[in-house]
Amino acid sequence: MALIGASQSIAAPLGLGLAAAGANVVDVPATLAARARLLTTGGGRKTDATDAASVARVALHHHRLNPVQPEDQSTILRLLTEHRDDLTHERTRILNRLHGLLRDLVPGGAPTGLSADKAATALRGVRPANATDACRRDIARHLLAALRRIDAQLKNSETELSQAVTATGSSLTELPGVGVIMAAKILGYVGDVARFPNADHVASYTGAAPTDASSGPRKRHRLNTGGNRQLNSALHIIAVVQAHHSHLGRAYYQRILGEGKTPAEARRALKRRLANIIYRRILKIRNNDFSATS
C-alpha cells in the first residue's frame, strides 16, 4: 500500500496503523505524486481518482521509497526533543520580554545574562514611582513565574531524554561534542537506520554531502542546502566542538586546512566524516538488537 506523506501528513495515523498491523506501506512524497499526475491526461488536474492512480504508479516504479515503520523508541526521542525545542524557544521569548520590562524598571538597565534568580533579585529592589511602573512590575512577576516553570520543565525534559537515550543502548554520547540532548535529536530524526542503503545516503539526508553540479567534462560540486536541517544543525555543532576540543577531530580539521581549504570547507568535510561515524554507530546498535532477537 502506498500513501502520500504517510509519515508526516494527515495520512500518518492510517499509515502507522497499517504498518503496526503488519501491512507493507510505503511513503510516497507529494512531489513525486504530482509529477506522475502531470504525465496523465486531463492537464494534471487534481482529483481523488487521479491522486490515487498517481500514488500507485510511483509506488510501482520507484523501489527506494521509505517504508512506513511502526512507532518505536526513535519516535519517543523525536517527540521529546521537539518538546524541548519548543520549551527553549518559549524560554527565550519570556526572557526577552522580561529583560525589556526590567530595563524600564531598574535604574541603569537590566542585568546581562538574565536568569530567573537575577530577575527575582532585580524585582525585589523595584519601587514603582507611578501606576505604569506598577503595571510593568506585575507583568514582570507573572513572566518570572512562567520562567521558573519552564526551567523546571527543561530540567525534567533532560532527565526524560537521558533515560530514553539510555534505553536505546546508543554509544553516540561517547563522541566528543555529543551530549544526551544531541544524541536524542540524532537518533530521533534518523529513525530506523535500515532505511538508508549506506552511509552516503545518510550524509545526503543530513545535508552533509555536497550535491553534484557537473556540466559536461567540468566536474564540480555545490553546497547542499537541503536535507534534514535539524540533523544538519546538530552535525555543525558537533563539528565546531571537535575542530577545537577533540584530538582526532582537530587533527582532521587541520589536515583539511593544510590542503588549502577554507575553514568553512574544512568544517563541511568534518561534518561529512561525522555523518559516516554516526551512521556506523547507529547501525551497530541495530545489528546488535537484530542478533539478540534472531
Rank of each mutant, 00 (worst) to 15 (best):
A213R: 13
L101R: 01
D72E: 11
G188W: 00
I237F: 06
A131C: 11
A34H: 12
L32G: 08
T293Q: 12
R250Y: 07
G17L: 10
N224Y: 05
L114M: 08
S171T: 09
L235Q: 01
D138L: 12
Y205D: 03
P263S: 10
R64D: 15
L60Y: 14
N232A: 08
P197S: 14
Y253A: 04
R286V: 06
S246K: 04
V180D: 08
V55W: 03
R148A: 15
L248N: 14
A49W: 08
A56I: 00
G258Y: 05
A59N: 04
A30G: 09
D151M: 05
K185T: 10
T211Q: 13
A146R: 06
A251E: 13
V28R: 01
V240D: 07
R141K: 15
A52Q: 07
L65G: 06
L144I: 01
A145F: 04
V106Y: 02
L161K: 01
A21Q: 09
R103P: 01
A131G: 11
Y252F: 14
K46F: 11
L235K: 00
L175A: 09
H83Q: 15
H83K: 10
A53Y: 09
A30T: 02
R148C: 11
L143Y: 08
A164E: 02
R57H: 13
R220C: 13
E265Y: 04
G249H: 01
A275P: 00
R91S: 12
L274E: 03
T121D: 07
G258W: 03
S162C: 15
I277V: 13
I150E: 02
T225Q: 10
V55R: 02
A120K: 00
L223H: 11
A30Y: 03
L144W: 00
A239E: 02
S204H: 11
T81C: 06
S54M: 05
A167Y: 03
A184C: 08
A184L: 05
L95A: 10
D212M: 08
A56R: 06
N287C: 11
V165W: 04
I285T: 11
A234K: 01
L248Q: 14
I139Y: 13
A145P: 00
S233R: 06
T168K: 03
G22S: 10
G108V: 00
G207S: 06
L60V: 07
A269S: 10
T206D: 08
K261P: 00
R286Q: 13
R268E: 05
A11M: 07
A275E: 03
D48S: 07
G17M: 12
D212F: 07
R250C: 14
I150M: 05
R267M: 10
T173W: 08
V180F: 13
T75Y: 09
T40C: 11
I76M: 14
K261W: 03
V240Y: 05
T211E: 14
L231Q: 02
H142G: 08
A129P: 03
Q8E: 12
G207K: 00
H201W: 08
I256Y: 06
G179S: 13
E71Y: 04
G191F: 04
A208G: 06
G5N: 14
Q254R: 14
H61L: 13
P67M: 06
L38G: 11
T225Y: 09
S162E: 15
A11F: 06
S7K: 07
Q153L: 13
L187A: 07
P197I: 05
L101N: 02
A167K: 05
G17R: 11
A145N: 09
P210S: 09
N224H: 10
S74A: 14
D289A: 15
R35L: 12
